[in-house]
Simulated scan of single mutants.
Amino acid sequence: MNKFWNWVRNEDNRTLYLNGTIAEESWFDDDVTPAAFKAELLSGEGDITVWINSPGGDCVAASQIYSMLMDYKGAVTVKIDGIAASAASVIAMAGTTVLMAPTALMMVHNPLTVAMGDSEEMKKAIALLDEVKESIINAYEIKTGLSRARLSHLMDAETWLSAHKAVELGFADDLLFQAAGDPAPPQPESFAFSRRTVTNRLLNKLPREAEETEQKQPAKPLYERLQLLKF
């Protein structure tokens, strides 16, 4: 059995580490992995801490972990020290308190699948993805209080959130580490960016000289235009 989690016990509480891809093998038709996770979760009492550094993975596994943590009797403190992307961001929403390192990232996007068959099979796949998306929005909505329409737009754009932006939008409650000193320093600018936004901004940075040259010559493919940019 592949375990993508690890429990560590100490005198004060229990700590769960979720590192790497969630469920390398799907939890569909698999009673062993969910049962094992639940057994370890319920093997003790009291508050727990969940550290997350994961690019995501199986949405079914994420849904079950989310539900188990939401139903857990003790307080659940989620700490994101690297990345909580895709399915991992869903698990993070189960935290009673969600904290992010100043350097951490969170990413939300639409669910993905692989489909094969005729047009009817493709329609079924699209319908399935739509329903899965709605179920994911449920978790985001409960935590953030944002409208379903706004959450849907964030997912459509494959949005990456800095720690401050995640706090601003309600995906997280605070930062893991705060700057010392009194009074508190002003909050830095927060960032949310998507693939579309980045592409458009990069294209807007094309040198004017290059644009003038292109007006006199046939348009170049996008990949050749991007080669003109400096990062």
Rank of each mutant, 00 (worst) to 15 (best):
M1P: 06
N2R: 06
K3E: 07
V8P: 00
R9C: 02
N10H: 13
T15R: 08
L18N: 04
A23R: 07
S26R: 07
S26G: 07
D31Q: 11
D31W: 09
D31R: 11
T33P: 00
P34Q: 11
A35N: 12
A35R: 14
A39V: 00
W51A: 01
S54H: 08
G57C: 04
A61S: 11
S63K: 11
S63T: 13
I65A: 05
I65L: 14
L69E: 04
Y72G: 01
Y72M: 06
K73D: 13
G74N: 08
G74W: 07
A75V: 02
A75W: 00
T77L: 11
T77M: 05
K79H: 05
K79T: 01
D81M: 07
A85C: 10
S86T: 01
A87Y: 01
I91D: 03
A94C: 12
M100N: 05
A101K: 09
M106Y: 01
N110D: 07
P111K: 11
P111I: 09
L112K: 10
T113V: 05
K123W: 08
K124E: 15
K124L: 15
D130T: 11
K133L: 13
K143N: 04
A149L: 10
S152E: 13
M155H: 03
E158T: 13
T159K: 00
S162N: 03
K165F: 09
A166V: 11
E168T: 10
L169D: 04
F171K: 03
D173F: 05
L176V: 12
F177L: 14
A179K: 13
A180E: 14
P183Y: 11
P186I: 12
P186W: 11
Q187W: 01
S190Q: 09
A192C: 14
F193V: 15
S194Y: 03
R195T: 08
T197M: 08
V198M: 12
T199D: 06
L202N: 10
N204S: 15
L206H: 03
P207L: 04
R208H: 05
E209N: 02
E209R: 02
E211N: 05
E214N: 06
P221S: 05
Y223E: 10
E224K: 15
R225T: 03
